[in-house]
């Protein structure tokens, strides 16, 4: 986990600790969801745990609005608007930026983060990267640990960006947190939605999985959601610093989202069975 603290869902933090791999020190953590599950709760907890550990967070939203995360934050007792005012949480609001480009009706600035929507560019996501780089620049300069969260990166595919360009963008974002010691200054969390029917989205998520030390994968139940079980959480951990470890450690759980907690239990041991 990018940063494990008491603000994290305790059950998830404990499961991650059990895998023996953490997400700190420039590591990449991948969180995947499906059409029937949502990783919003986990994203909020990444933010909460970072903020508690005095790690500032930079969040790039591409699918949900900033207000969506503020509402979830309020439920778990985290006032994200306050954190943003204090500068602990910085937000690059993708949806708002896209809306700005569309409103400009083709007259957008060349350096705009989403100017690729108006005109073809060799590297469509370079401007967005520059924006993120500028956002985290003060933290990098002062050498403090921070976290970058990229939400729903496959949304960029729907804006016409090629998979290869998204992979390059993520690669550069990973460089921002200093993926190799001694230059490590943070950690990167990438959130993606799995869609088996979309070949590009699949290749993208596979590519990210090859790079990630931790992969938290949320799946719905094949029989549909039930009152006591909301889905399956699979934690895949592979220590990329130990090349002799070829096969990742995989833990499977069933989960139930509660008001302020994510309850994990071994498959087949939910309350409606026991």
């Amino acid at each position: 986990m990018a940063c494990i603290s008491n603000r994290m869902f305790e059950s998830v933090a404990s499961a991650v600790r059990g895998s023996g791999v953490d997400g700190v020190g420039g590591k990449l953590t991948l969180v995947t969801q499906t059409s029937t599950t949502s990783a919003s709760g986990l994203i909020i907890n990444f933010i909460a745990s970072s903020v508690t550990a005095d790690w500032p967070v930079c969040l790039l939203t591409l699918h949900n609005t900033w207000g969506h995360y503020c509402n979830i934050g309020n439920k778990v007792g985290l006032n994200l608007r306050n954190q943003r005012e204090q500068g602990t949480v910085k937000v690059v609001d993708g949806l708002q930026l896209v809306s700005g480009v569309i409103d400009a009706k083709g007259n957008c600035d060349d350096n705009h983060s989403f100017s690729f929507i108006c005109k073809p560019l060799q590297y469509p996501l370079k401007n967005l990267y520059d924006n993120l780089k500028q956002t985290v620049h003060p933290w990098r300069e002062s050498g403090i640990q921070f976290q970058i969260i990229l939400e729903d990166v496959e949304s960029l595919l729907h804006l016409g960006v090629r998979r290869k360009d998204i992979e390059t963008f993520i690669h550069y974002c990973w460089n921002l947190v200093g993926k190799s010691p001694p230059s490590t200054v943070g950690s990167l969390v990438v959130v993606a939605t799995i869609d088996e029917a979309d070949e590009d989205a699949n290749l993208l998520s596979h590519n990210m999985t090859h790079l990630a030390s931790l992969h938290l994968s949320l799946h719905g139940l094949s029989t549909g959601p039930s009152r006591e079980v909301h889905g399956l959480l699979r934690i895949t951990a592979l220590d990329r610093n130990c090349p002799n470890q070829c096969v990742p450690l995989i833990q499977n759980f069933q989960y139930k989202m509660e008001e302020k907690n994510m309850k994990l239990f071994a498959p087949g041991t939910s309350a409606n069975i026991l």
């Binding site: 596979h206 999985t209 090859h210 592979l238 990329r240 090349p243 470890q245 070829c246 096969v247 990742p248």
Partner: peptide, 12 residues
């Protein structure tokens, strides 16, 4: 290799 098995050790 695949996401289920890492071939970096073999490469090294």
């Amino acid at each position: 290799d695949t996401v289920e098995v890492c071939g970096r050790g073999l490469l090294y």
